[in-house]
Design a protein around this nucleic acid. Structure first.
Lengths: 222, 222
DNA sequence: GTAAAAGTTTGCAGCGGCTGCAAGTACGGC
DNA sequence: GCCGTACTTGCAGCCGCTGCAAACTTTTAC
């Protein structure tokens, strides 16, 4: 319902947007209540007051209605990453490139918390989330290759892209799951710090027999 | 009483194993030839000479026949990781824990190359590969938490698990894709070195405009 | 050796996801 | 008001997948 942008959308466009939002909302609500397997496309479309056939005019898949909104990493990861001044190191540049997405998620906090809860409760959706990220990862590979001067089929750019995606996803899930009210941006920063510095330097120094939960060595970024 | 499969499997078990293998082989071959969407369960079961209904006695899903074999990370990631002496640092321990899987993959080289090619050519399968890895990741989280003394709901163990999975997957895909005959173990080692040392130390030092593709060796982390 | 038990395969009926096609209906421009 | 365009809808149909019950096969027990 919320129209952030409205240059000059005709009434038709408004209705479309409305229908789309209604379908997504209905899908999220119903699946949250009953679980993915106990909600049919018919249920969703009925709740949104359109025909089942119309559902598939908006989403290719039932799952799409749950993840299919304007996704983070949407427009062009490639361009955004290359837009960061080349003096900036790789990881900060990656962080910068996704910062817009993070902000958007924080903006629609409740919506995303619901969405992520639904994803967490229905594991088959997690893989779809990954799949979504992958098109962005393909662009990231190219951009990282360009920034580093490595060939795109080298292991490093591919690693950088997949690891970045995994770190971002982990931070998001952690954000959505934990009770503490930690900032998403904060969590992403922490995750990216580990990415940059490596697991070896980010873990507590292997407490051989020590039972004390060593202080998280992450002061590096707090 | 448990293992020693080849020792005393009844005739029935042998036939089952045979059927299972036939179905997997048929599925891989047909999908490799025609693409996932142009192969039906009926095609597969016909090629394996069983009824379509029987297919679903063996695999829950069409995709399962493509990924569903004995998967790496199979038995218990948790136990394997904790079996590594606690003196060993985290990343080498993780590497050690999956080394058996790597060896097995190398053993069945051709089979896995086919499987990974099929996965690469049918993107929807990639996400399923991730999903498979996730049950292993859950165990990894617990084990890493135990090793580091951190609580299991801390960001770090979760990051370590997902990043490890991502790094392993990336190395596998790279192994299957590249023409060079690089060892899988070698690639995984390189990927894990990046994991341990971090992207910041593993990337070439941000060549502002340098065109020379710096050597890729993991020795970069001096 | 035979009969019961246990396990497997198969056909059948049916739901639900998803698609192409061919109306029907609302909208926007004129 | 009229027309072209865009969106909606119903319909027919394929395919993935499941439960059920009737064969059929192997194993076990007597």
């Amino acid at each position: 319902m919320v129209e952030t942008e409205a240059a000059a959308p005709t009434r038709r466009d408004r209705k479309k947007q409305q229908t789309r939002a209604a379908l997504m909302a209905a899908a999220l609500r119903l699946v949250d209540e009953r679980g993915l397997d106990h909600v049919t496309v018919e249920d969703i479309s009925e709740a949104a007051d359109v025909s089942p056939r119309t559902f598939f005019n908006y989403f290719a898949t039932k799952d799409d209605a749950l993840l299919g909104g304007p996704l983070p990493h949407g427009p062009s990861m490639h361009d955004r990453l290359l837009a960061v001044p080349s003096g900036v190191a790789l990881v900060p540049a990656l962080l910068e490139a996704i910062s817009a997405d993070i902000a958007e998620i924080q903006d629609q906090r409740d919506f995303w918390l619901l969405r992520l809860r639904v994803i967490k409760d229905n594991p088959s959706l997690v893989s779809m989330l990954v799949a979504r990220g992958e098109c962005a990862e393909a662009e990231t590979i190219v951009a990282v290759a360009a920034r580093t001067g490595l060939p795109a089929d080298d292991l490093f750019p591919q690693l950088a892209a997949t690891l970045t995606g995994a770190a971002f996803r982990t931070a998001m899930m952690r954000w959505a799951t934990a009770g503490d009210g930690r900032d998403l941006l904060d969590l992403v920063r922490e995750a990216f710090a580990v990415l940059a510095e490596g697991l070896a330097r980010s873990a507590p120094p292997a407490p051989t027999h020590d039972a004390t939960p060593a202080p998280t060595h992450e002061k590096v970024l707090r």
